[in-house]
Computed example of a mutant assay.
Amino acid sequence: MNVLVVGGAGYIGSHCVRQLIAAGHRPVVLDNLVFGHRAAVAKEIPLYDVNLGDEAAVGAILEKEKIEVVMHFAAYAFVGESVAQPLKYYFNNVSATLHLLNVMLAKGVKKFVFSSTCATYGIPEKMPIVEGSPQAPINPYGQTKLDIENALKSVAHATGLSFAAFRYFNAAGASEDGVIGEDHNPETHLIPLAIAAAQGKAPALKIFGTDYPTPDGTCLRDYVHVDDLARAHIAVFEKLSTPGASLFFNLGTGTPTSVREVIAAVEKASGLKVPFTEAPRRAGDPPALYADSTKAKTELGWKIKFTTIQPIVDTAWKWHASRPNGYKA
């Protein structure tokens, strides 16, 4: 199928582009390159530097490229920034997405795959998190994702749009061949921060909270390899043939990993020590967050290749070691 990958030059989007090709599809990328990297997309793949709010330009792309499915990865995703600049997040994550949906419907494109987040659950009372767990976001980032989930349900009911919303846990790792990987500015994710500290490119890693009710006192999180995420998005395509399909899936391994375990995995992959300091807990950090992804496995036949933290970190190290300056190298 002809697939428009919105945000396809970003971290998850660029990995999805490669997985689409491997699965026999034809990806087309739309990315304004605010956070994406042109070098993350192979030169032979069409890339349009367009803003989602420009409905005329987006509509022309949908027609020219004969797009059948749209995949949306173009949200802003810095939690702290969303608290400080909520309007920025509502304009980009909500308003721009509504423009995209509006032009899709106008052009008769009615299959949509949405990158959502476990942040829609807020601080859950029970683990693991299932799709039916209460959704109560604690920051504007999570709220904007939930707003689009709710909008999608209404639009699907009214128009026959078919969609799947994937609630990610902690996307991590890099392509196995080391060609593309994680290059954010600023970087907020634990694994690349730990690698940068080990390389001496960043200050000592801060462990926020060492007195949680967890096996080693540090927070537990669910790290899922970025290629495993991408494969789930492609597996859902056949489910979108039913008009009005409204699908929600958690994507995680279901295996929680502590901050100290991530540090140990980085040290094993790199052969370097990760310098760190211990700091007080951060407000709003729950002791543990991990997924029950049974639904994706059962309904989509989703199979997780990277089931533990070490191979995930190994791919991340391969990327960062070979590209110490990211895509600028």
Score class of each variant (00 low, 15 high):
Asn102Asp: 10
Ala106Ile: 14
Leu152Arg: 10
Gly142Gln: 05
Ser175Met: 12
Lys126Met: 09
Thr120Ile: 15
Gly132Phe: 02
Lys126Ile: 13
Ile148Thr: 03
Met127Pro: 04
Glu131Ser: 02
Leu98Met: 11
Ser154Arg: 15
Val109Leu: 02
His99Leu: 01
Ala156Pro: 04
Tyr141Ser: 06
Asp147Val: 14
Leu152Thr: 00
Tyr168Glu: 03
Asn102Val: 05
Tyr121Cys: 12
Val94Tyr: 02
Ile129Phe: 04
Arg167Met: 04
Ala164His: 07
Lys110Asn: 06
Asn93Lys: 00
Met127Glu: 10
Pro140Ser: 09
Val109Phe: 04
Gln135Leu: 13
Ala96Ser: 02
Thr159Ala: 14
Ser154Asp: 13
Ala164Val: 11
Ser116Leu: 02
Tyr121Val: 14
Ala119Val: 06
Leu100Gly: 00
Pro137Lys: 06
Gln135Ala: 13
Ile138Tyr: 10
Ser162His: 07
Ser133Gln: 07
Val155Ser: 12
Ile129Glu: 12
Leu161Ser: 12
Cys118Ser: 11
Leu101Asn: 03
Leu98Thr: 02
Gly142Trp: 08
Ile148Ala: 05
Thr159Arg: 15
Asn102Thr: 14
Phe169Glu: 08
Tyr121Ile: 14
Leu161His: 11
Ala119Gly: 04
Ala156Ile: 11
Ala106Glu: 12
Lys145Gln: 05
Gly178Thr: 06
Lys153Ile: 15
Leu161Cys: 12
Gly142Asn: 08
Gly178Lys: 09
Lys110Arg: 15
Gly142Tyr: 09
Gly108Tyr: 07
Met127His: 06
Thr117Lys: 05
His99Val: 03
Lys126Tyr: 05
Val155Met: 08
Val94Thr: 10
Glu125Asn: 07
Lys110Gln: 12
Gly122Gln: 10
Tyr121Gly: 07
Ile138Pro: 11
Gly122Thr: 13
Leu100Asp: 02
Ala136Met: 12
Gly132Trp: 02
Leu100Thr: 01
Ser162Asn: 07
Ala158Cys: 11
Ala164Glu: 02
His99Gln: 05
Pro128Tyr: 07
Lys145Tyr: 02
Ala171Pro: 15
Pro137Leu: 04
